[in-house]
Design a protein around this nucleic acid. Structure first.
Lengths: 242, 242
DNA sequence: AAATGAAAGTTATATATAGAACTGGTTGAC
DNA sequence: GTCAACCAGTTCTATATATAACTTTCATTT
């Protein structure tokens, strides 16, 4: 059940090999989000390929949301819209156009042995656990419990608090070259236990919304599992299907 | 703000025109799900196009989930998996592998003037309203209020109850050639009013999950708006992001 | 009866090429 | 100085062609 990460280049079709190569170079930070990749023609010459093949490879990365093509201009990295895509739950119902990123308080980070259910999802029980509290409109509204594999995020628990921004996924990318490409969310409903209630400043037993999320890399390898709880009456979750 | 439905063929690119043409013929029921469409070569000859252009059009429909290509064999209609894709909320948490389609009871159907908020979404206030109650494991678990534009679904309210199956989207497709391609869901939590409580057999004021859904055609035209309520403690909503 | 092989038809991959549509900058006329 | 024209570079659309990989069918051989 071991997933060797970068088994590149078996005898895959050329367009897939180019896609993988580009994806790797993107992850390696070879280009910035403002200025941009070699042109189709250039990639074709360099790779000894035809333009059609190059376009097919690039188009895949566009479909996957990594790249963005601008006709007449070039092909660019898409600035990951963490906000809009992967962080859109708990948009406050009366917040109007605010759209502000909520602030985060790190409560703890430690390397621990993961609970069975988490270990099963991540494929290892050697994990780093992060406890976090997020505020919105000066009130706590999300209590989070996050698990990430220690082998992928070696040393994460040592990073000074002030170097960890309000969003984790950019940190994963910048410091560990781990890109969160997709996620499964599961929303349900429960009641607050003592600890959660204290953090959220509500009474134990009050209704909370529960979001369990598993985040995956482009290759589909699970990167993170988290469970988040917030007051049910302030909760709103949006999802696009299809 | 009027959307003329089938403004085909402006001077769109050839591959888009072919895509639209095929989509229309699919919706018209020209092919069945078992045996299948003309080959790439055939479509190219018939349309006076090159194979590359045809492949691009067909690929779009594959990406949209309408078609399915089988190498060496042909291109086939995909049987829409209504169950898995558009009807996955309220999977009961302890139902195990049941996966059974819940039963439906139609409570009312009538042509009415839509509330403002609904009219705004659908673009018309001439709608048909459907009230429905869905059961699971012999208990009511979803009370639904559904609105569809009367012009798209003329005569829907006349169809005998027993000819409306437990799932609405196949009915839309079979009888009205309306294909639901995507949807926006919005999940929140609230409390049951008198009517909802009676239907769900719970007490007024008890916690309910609320799902508001807007469903769209392939062209992005809103087709249906619904609001559904169910007991919060039995609720579980899954969503894939990215 | 079962295995083999050939053939035709299909999608999948890849190349080469051409012009259209668009962008961003530079040049030149006024 | 301003505006228009041009230009080089880019993506986008479309064609034509060739070969590989695969499926299905049918005839032949064993």
């Amino acid at each position: 059940m071991v997933e060797t990460a970068s088994t590149i280049d078996t005898r895959l079709p050329a367009y897939l090999r180019l896609r993988d190569d580009l994806a790797a170079r993107i992850a390696a930070g070879e280009w910035r989000t403002d200025e941009a990749l070699p042109s189709d023609n250039r990639l074709a010459r360099d790779g000894g390929l035809s333009v059609g093949t190059v376009r097919k490879a690039v188009q895949m990365l566009v479909d996957e949301g990594l790249l963005e093509r601008r006709q007449g201009s070039g092909t660019y990295l898409r600035k990951p819209a963490f906000n809009a895509t992967l962080f859109r739950f708990f948009q406050m119902r009366d917040a109007g156009s605010g759209q502000s990123i909520p602030t985060s308080r790190l409560l703890s980070r430690s390397r621990v042995k993961a609970p069975d259910s988490v270990a099963k999802v991540l494929g290892t029980d050697d994990v780093i656990r992060i406890e976090r509290l997020r505020d919105f409109a000066d009130k706590p509204f999300l209590s989070e419990d996050i698990y990430i594999p220690a082998n992928l995020f070696a040393g994460f628990e040592m990073i000074p608090d002030n170097e960890v921004g309000p969003l984790l996924y950019p940190v994963y990318l910048d410091r560990f070259d781990v890109f969160v490409a997709s996620a499964d969310d599961e929303v349900s409903f429960g009641t607050a236990d003592e600890i959660t209630a204290a953090r959220l400043e509500i009474k134990p037993g009050e209704a909370v919304a529960v979001i369990e999320r598993t985040a995956y890399s482009i290759k589909g390898i699970p990167i993170e599992w988290r469970i988040a709880r917030g007051p049910a009456n302030r909760f709103r979750y949006r999802s696009r299907i299809g």
